[in-house]
Write a protein that binds this DNA or RNA. Structure first.
Length: 574
RNA sequence: GCCUCUGUAGCUCAGUGGACAGAGCACCGGUCUUCUAAACCGUUGGUCGCAGGUUCGAGUCCUGCCAGGGGCGCCA
């Protein structure tokens, strides 16, 4: 289906060119023509402020608007174009066009507003990417929801999308995890072992240890930490995948950082950076002042391998290979993103917490040092998330403590168990990634009319209820005359047609949260109309009932598409 | 100190340089004899953190302050 604002933008540009050809307007390069729905209904359905052309055209805005109106090509969806002071061009969508869209929406079904922005191109979304040392936390969950919604949006925009999970199972943390599990296992065998500070204290390792003891008895008593690390990793990944699957998220690929060492890609990246003159060996960075040098001397560091990232605007050069010969995290990260770019994605979205901000900048500097253009890579930074609940006594929100006490929340599993997968997906999505998120667990748990999750899903449920009842009564919409639809129903269709723009905007601006807000707005248009527009009512004539049934078929398609784009379920009843 | 995000109704938050700043919750008052009332209708509520600037036009862009979060490692 067409994006109407794009059609009008093109038409206005054509009108300007025609006016220029007729010497009614001077020659100038036509700027971007922003067309958007105005705030108020009496200002039409689509609007363009021609005031922006006043300086270029050296005419009064109202005159420009009138000239454009006169030269505007015929639009299949428009019946009325009006000019309003000081220079708005307002366009109203014709009722007949809206009626025709009912059938178009039904015909498109799950492909509703499938765009061609990314046709023939590939995109990648890298998200979650938590190391397999523990369960998915609510912090990871936010990135998971944002990343998956972004992937679904990119698919809707026409891209072939790959979902990737990047992880590291070779670091010091995984050694600790293995050792922690070994000690927990020995505890299962009845040995008195103390888990000292620095080890993983989480109860979940006790469960894993109990499973191992049950399956293998004491046969692992003399196994080393590496055996337990592998066992822990395998079980943690199972758990992570299960948790993500519970909110309908699945990755296509798991990319192990270790493979970058095994393939030699890390050292090849370093060599290229060195060939390009961005690498040097030194005990301290090239711009170090006397204090820093003294500090380094005190620590007795041997020379390390540095990346001259200051060349690309960094405030300080970065170590790539430590003096002990082991690369920092940054070098494999650069090699990984080089690999990503070489895989040829037109768009590579990376969902990260803001604590990775500096790191992401250094990676981009590194890619430039490799002679690559990092433009396809776009990072969505999401701010911190914490579970909170209202404290009545103190009159303020406070963070829910991380503990295993009943009613407290720490992991995605806890959150899903206490609320629902749909609630988690909606509330994690319905906020700009840039804003800190306080997840009000009590509000989400409350299954009442204050919960937008049910408000949106109920729109679909109400449609499904009508279809069920209609089937029982033997009513179908064969031969429906859509001319019987009135202003109410057309108002909903008008709003539903904005979905295409919402998808487009969400994709090009990397703002998946727009989907959640639009869903709520659309439901707010739907419900009042549902109250007024009955189908199975004794006073509704048969032909009107058929037309309305067809209208609700279209509404159901829109809500189903919207809910699936958000990764939420579309229940038939609640 | 530097970088970055945030500051909009009592609370949680939307808001493409455009028209009279929006929604949910909370508060108050109404609405089920017909497809589920998890809904609908109505009322109340604003110096868009502060001060300048750019612009025909600023919640939106720029500068400077104030407040809060995050980051500034030879950790990952």
């Amino acid at each position: 289906m067409k994006l109407l604002n794009k059609e009008l933008e093109k038409a206005i540009a054509t009108a300007i060119r025609r006016a220029q050809a007729a010497a009614e307007l001077p020659e100038f390069e036509i700027p971007y023509i922003p067309v958007s729905p105005p705030r108020r209904a009496d200002q039409g359905d689509l609007s363009y402020p021609a005031m922006g052309l006043a300086k270029l055209a050296r005419r009064k805005p109202i005159e420009i608007a009138n000239l454009i109106k006169e030269r505007l090509p015929a639009l299949e969806f428009s019946c009325a174009v009006e000019v309003a002071p000081p220079g708005f061009i307002n366009c109203r969508i014709a009722d007949d066009y809206l009626r025709r869209q009912v059938d178009n929406i039904i015909a498109e079904g799950e492909a509703l507003f499938q765009l061609d922005i990314g046709a023939g191109k590939t995109a990648q979304v890298e998200f979650v990417s938590a190391n397999p040392s523990g369960p998915v936390t609510i912090g990871h969950a936010r990135g998971a929801v944002i990343g998956d919604a972004m992937a679904r949006l990119l698919e809707a925009a026409g891209y072939a999308v790959q979902r990737e999970y990047y992880y590291n199972n070779a670091g010091e943390q995984m050694v600790k995890l293995g050792e922690s599990l070994r000690l927990r296992y020995l505890q299962q065998l009845g040995e008195l072992v103390d888990l000292q500070a620095g080890y993983y204290q989480g109860e979940y390792l006790v469960d894993v240890a109990a499973e191992l003891a049950a399956e293998r008895g004491d046969s692992l008593r003399d196994s080393g930490w590496d055996y337990f690390r592998d066992a822990a990793e395998a079980r943690m990944f199972d758990w992570i995948k299960r948790s993500l699957a519970s909110i309908d998220i699945a990755h296509d690929a798991f990319y192990n950082e270790t493979s970058l060492f095994e393939s030699g890609k890390i050292w090849r990246a370093l060599d290229t950076m060195r060939d390009n003159g961005h690498i040097y060996e030194s005990a301290y960075w090239a711009g170090a002042d006397a204090d820093e040098i003294a500090d380094v001397s005190a620590k007795g560091y041997q020379p390390a391998t540095w990346f001259r990232s200051t060349t690309f605007g960094d405030e300080k050069d970065r170590v790539m290979v430590k003096s002990d010969g082991v690369p920092t995290y940054t070098l494999p990260d650069i090699a990984y993103h080089r690999d990503k770019l070489e895989r040829g994605y037109a768009v590579a979205v990376n969902v990260l917490g803001t604590d990775h901000f500096s790191q992401a900048q250094v990676v981009k500097h590194g890619l430039r040092a490799l002679g690559l253009d990092p433009a396809p890579i776009h990072v969505i930074f999401n701010q911190m998330v914490r579970a909170v609940r209202w404290n009545e006594e103190r009159g303020e929100y406070e963070a829910v403590k991380q503990s295993k006490r009943a009613g407290d929340f720490d992991t995605l599993d806890d959150l899903v168990e206490m609320t629902s997968a749909d609630a988690v997906r909606y509330h994690m999505l319905a906020r700009s990634p840039n804003s800190q998120l306080d997840f009000d667990v009590d509000q989400v748990v409350r299954q009442s009319n204050e919960n937008p999750v049910y408000y949106i899903q109920n729109a679909y449920v109400r449609c499904a209820g009508i279809f069920r009842e209609a089937r029982e009564r033997g009513l179908d919409e064969a031969g429906a005359d859509l001319g019987l639809l009135r202003a109410d129903e057309l108002q909903f269709i008008r709003k539903a047609l904005e979905l295409g723009n919402v998808i487009e905007q969400a994709v090009v601006n990397y703002e998946p949260h727009k989907l959640a807000f639009f869903a709520h707005e659309l439901a707010a248009v739907f419900h009042p109309i549902y109250d007024r527009v009955r189908v199975l009512h004794s006073e509704v004539p048969l032909d009107t009932a058929k037309a309305r049934l067809r209208y609700y078929r279209a509404a159901a398609v829109v809500f189903h598409r919207l809910l699936r784009l958000m990764g939420m379920s579309a229940p038939e009843r609640m």
